[in-house]
Computed example of a mutant assay.
Amino acid sequence: MEVGGKKINALNVVSNKEHKGFGAGSIDLNNVSAVIIDKDGEEAYIDLGALHAKSKVEKGIKFSANKEDVPNGRRCWIVWIAVDKREEGMYYAGATACEMLVDTEARRGWKILADHVNKMDYAMKRRIVLDGLSDGEKAALKRCLIEYNEGMWDASTDELKEKLG
């Protein structure tokens, strides 16, 4: 999205565009976005690059499925956010958190790709799975969602609000 000539990140909102071509009808990412939580919950921001493993924290990082390969990695999270529409309006319908370790200096990282794919699917199925997030990380996610669109936060489920405190 561009505002005043400056590109800004935004959550995807349910689209009326129909995807045609290979894989049409198999998966719809129009209503899924990603929030990155970094720096022990001090930073939470929308990064649509995560949909293709090209978020700010993932760029230039060689990922391994072995945690031991990243002894100095900092913990980061990708939180898949699905949005939907109902009578009350747009709301945050699904939210699932996936852990990563990233060592920017060594350009190495750890993540379990299957977990990221499954959690994205869970978010699209309107599940709320935020296990493992610290209180600070939950607060950062909540702040990010409210700052992006307080009306969507207000219309969201009690389950999401309770899990984020």
Rank of each mutant, 00 (worst) to 15 (best):
E2L: 13
E2G: 07
E2M: 11
G4K: 07
K7E: 13
N12V: 08
V14A: 09
E18C: 09
G23H: 09
G23S: 10
A24K: 12
A24L: 04
G25A: 03
S26E: 15
S26A: 13
I27G: 11
I27S: 13
L29I: 12
V32K: 02
V32R: 00
S33D: 01
S33H: 03
A34Y: 05
I36F: 02
I37T: 05
D38W: 06
D38I: 01
K39R: 13
D40K: 14
E42G: 14
E43T: 15
A44V: 01
I46E: 05
L48I: 06
G49T: 02
H52F: 13
A53N: 09
K54S: 14
S55Y: 07
K56S: 11
K56Y: 12
V57M: 12
G60C: 06
I61M: 06
N66I: 06
D69P: 01
D69I: 04
D69H: 10
P71K: 02
P71C: 03
N72E: 12
G73M: 08
R74S: 14
C76E: 07
W77R: 00
W80T: 00
W80P: 01
W80L: 03
I81F: 05
I81G: 01
A82N: 08
V83P: 00
D84S: 15
E87F: 11
E88T: 11
G89Y: 09
M90E: 12
Y91L: 13
Y92L: 02
A93D: 04
A93T: 02
T96N: 04
M100H: 09
L101F: 04
L101R: 00
T104Q: 15
E105K: 15
R107G: 07
R108A: 08
W110C: 01
W110G: 00
K111P: 00
L113T: 12
D115M: 04
V117L: 13
N118R: 10
K119F: 10
D121S: 14
D121W: 08
Y122E: 13
R127M: 11
V129W: 05
G132H: 11
G132K: 08
A140C: 04
C144R: 10
Y148K: 10
N149S: 14
E150P: 05
G151N: 14
M152D: 02
M152R: 01
M152K: 04
W153A: 08
D154I: 11
D158H: 04
E159K: 15
L160D: 05
L160Q: 06
L164R: 03
L164Q: 05
